Computed example of a mutant assay.
Amino acid sequence: MMLLRLIWQIPMTLLVLIMVFVFANEYAVARSSRRTKDIAYVQANQPGFNAERQTLDVYTPKNESAKTRPVVVFIHGGAWNSGSKSLYSFVGRRLAKQGIVAVVVSYRLAPDVEVPAMVDDCGRAVLWTAQHIAEYGGDPNRIFVMGHSAGGGIAASLSTDDPFFARLGLPQNPIKGAILDDPAGLDMYDYLQKMEYSGDEKYLIPFGKKPDVWRAMSALYHVSARCPPVLLYVGERTYPSIAQSTRKFRQRLQDLGVRHAFTVLPGKKHIPMVTQLFWKNNVIYQGTRKFVGL
């Protein structure tokens, strides 16, 4: 009986210790940064304005700097139908702790809108960043986008689509580089034509049923020699569709001479590719620091 009690108590003790460690670590990281939350990146009087979804949080290092800092705009994943900036505060805090001004974005989701509107939202968040980030110590000339899963696909679309920012009134794309963490949707044109996997029909909700939209929302078909540099990280055990599309994306970057780095992380599945960002010294943050010039 005593042995059984000890066996039952060990997992609970470990759980408590883990929770204490996590909260202590999060508290220590939070103390080193300042968050300004729920900033609307579109005007509230615009038709269809969503006060919950069309907002962003800015994370700035608390230590003073005589120089402006590089900026990373983080776009969350969630299969284009879930997720929120509040779930990824740990990314904003860890980027800020490393001397980066972080902008963590929420955007409208399916079924309320389709992917073109999501890309538009995130593009307007980048536009807001270019116009206002100097007020938070960030350098508007050093804006990078970062995203996981669906957010990685959106980040890739924004970094390869110069005409989008021209339509917003910017003379050039303000994005200086993209950090793509196990990105989804790089080639939805091919994916949705094949429908190889069970349940693929659900992606017709965010992407619609028009092949020309699938192609327009697939970054693979918009890569050009003018594109900014790319860091591309893929989990060795990620979904087959992501493994295939990232290899095609990498080949396209290589063919056009776009500066990039492609890293396969051994043993990693899709979800751990983002949860590893809880640890500020993981390989993605290490690459990001060098990428943004720190």
Rank of each mutant, 00 (worst) to 15 (best):
P266A: 15
A216G: 02
K280L: 14
R142W: 00
P171V: 11
E26V: 10
R5S: 12
I179D: 07
E52H: 11
M217V: 02
F249L: 08
V16N: 04
F291S: 12
V104G: 05
V22H: 03
Q251G: 07
Y239Q: 12
M12L: 15
P266L: 07
P47A: 14
M12R: 13
A102K: 11
N25Y: 15
K290E: 12
I205W: 04
D181W: 01
D38C: 05
Y88A: 00
R5I: 13
G78S: 10
T55H: 04
R289H: 10
G83F: 03
S245P: 06
H76L: 01
L168A: 11
F278L: 15
V29Q: 12
R31Y: 09
E135G: 06
P183I: 02
K85M: 06
L168M: 13
A117S: 13
S106G: 13
F23E: 08
E236G: 01
G137W: 04
Y88C: 03
G267L: 03
M2S: 09
L168P: 00
T68M: 14
A110C: 05
T129D: 06
Q254W: 08
G185P: 04
Y239W: 12
P47T: 14
I100Q: 00
S33G: 04
G287P: 07
D139A: 06
Q54F: 02
G123N: 05
K97E: 12
I39M: 11
G169C: 06
V42S: 07
A28L: 13
F249M: 10
G153F: 08
V29R: 13
G77H: 03
L277P: 08
D57Y: 07
M19Q: 10
H76A: 03
M273Y: 00
T13Q: 04
M12D: 01
F144E: 01
F21M: 12
D187R: 01
I7W: 08
T238C: 05
N50K: 06
C227Q: 14
A30F: 05
